[in-house]
Computed example of a mutant assay.
Amino acid sequence: MTNTIEASDGGYRFMPGVSQYSCGVAALPGFAIERVRFAEPVPLSAGFAGIADILKAAGRPLTAFAACELRSPAPFTEEGFKAFNEIYIKTLVAWGVMRGVNPVARSNVCPKLDPPGEPSFHAFCYTVPAAKDAPASFVVAGSGESVEGKANYRDHTVALGDTSPAGLLAKAKFVADEMERRMSAFGGRWQDTTAVQLYTVHDAYPVLESELGRRGVLRNGLTWHFDRPPVVGLDFEMDCRRVHRERVV
């Protein structure tokens, strides 16, 4: 099992990832993760303010902010993605959430239809006190078909530019393997998930049964968003979670 780090003042532990996000989070004993989805995308600055208000109303500190799902207008260039992440991270530092290592799990994808005009929040997760015997909860961050933490995405992307059935199968295998690696850090498996999300604008039908189905990914259904991953050149992304309480605001 991969080592994780406790964010004790947040009520969760996390699997270290890259500077812009962690690979995933799981509630510590005595806590549970809850998810809030916005009815419409909320621009980044207003979204952070709204999240702060929701945390305050719940009696939770800003450090309870554990994961988020973003929506952006279109895939970024690698340089543009780096610049965006630097802006995003500033708030995490100001909140005291990020102290050297980023504990917050994240997905950031780009709707092909009706995209937002600027990077916006779609949903976020935070921790709340729970009974010691509460069911385990975790959120695994989004991952596309490239090795993260390298000098760039392009040189480490699986089947770059190949959206044929064979190319998408190779991408799906890589991404599903990465989901399993991240879940394993929290003792999780596909059958433990309460939701699995897929992000692609390409025909994923050929891999649904042959690759994802055989692994058990579809056990509790699959939410397919007609969205692109956040960086130009990526075509297939997934995330998953085990969260027992969700609401829409």
Results as ranks from 00 to 15, higher is better:
7 A>E: 11
7 A>R: 07
10 G>H: 05
10 G>A: 11
12 Y>M: 10
14 F>C: 01
14 F>T: 00
16 P>F: 04
16 P>R: 13
21 Y>H: 13
22 S>N: 03
23 C>L: 07
28 L>A: 06
29 P>Q: 07
36 V>G: 00
38 F>G: 04
45 S>T: 08
46 A>K: 08
48 F>W: 12
54 I>Y: 10
63 T>A: 05
65 F>T: 00
65 F>V: 01
68 C>V: 02
70 L>I: 06
76 F>T: 09
77 T>R: 14
78 E>T: 00
79 E>R: 10
81 F>V: 15
85 N>P: 06
90 K>E: 15
93 V>F: 14
106 R>M: 15
106 R>C: 13
107 S>G: 11
107 S>D: 13
113 L>K: 14
120 S>F: 05
125 C>M: 08
128 V>M: 08
133 D>M: 08
134 A>F: 00
138 F>W: 03
139 V>R: 02
141 A>T: 04
143 S>K: 07
146 S>D: 15
151 A>P: 02
157 T>L: 10
168 L>P: 00
170 A>P: 04
177 D>S: 08
182 R>S: 07
184 S>E: 04
189 R>D: 02
190 W>Y: 05
191 Q>M: 08
194 T>R: 05
197 Q>L: 05
198 L>K: 05
200 T>E: 01
208 L>Q: 07
210 S>C: 06
210 S>K: 05
231 V>C: 09
241 R>C: 05
245 R>S: 11
245 R>N: 14
249 V>T: 05
